[in-house]
């Protein structure tokens, strides 16, 4: 199985073949950016629903 050159051999905990190291850098960066964006959106949704529960008073009265 191809491993990045010069990388110390570690026990491989998978029977599954791994991805090539060259692709990982970009994959990692994209992942981090994606997580940040997702969290931002979700926090906004949560806050909006919290406020909406109070606004119901105005809507229903």
């Amino acid at each position: 199985m191809p491993e990045a050159a010069g990388r110390p051999e570690k026990p491989i905990h998978m029977t599954q073949p791994k991805m090539q190291h060259a692709a990982i850098d970009q994959y990692d960066a994209e992942r981090r950016k994606g997580v940040r964006r997702t969290v931002k959106i979700l926090v906004v949704i949560a806050a909006a629903f919290f406020l909406v529960s109070f606004v119901q008073i105005v809507l229903m009265k």
Binding site: H13, M14, T15, Q16, P17, K18, M19, H21, I24, Y27
Partner: peptide, 28 residues
């Protein structure tokens, strides 16, 4: 590792018990 004869999915490709870290490097 597979535990059940008909089991499919990535979770069954790691050893049993699952090591502390799995898929450090994404699997193909």
């Amino acid at each position: 590792d597979r535990v059940w004869e008909g089991a499919k999915g990535l979770e069954w490709t790691v050893p049993s018990p699952a090591p502390h870290h799995t898929f450090d490097v994404p699997p193909v």
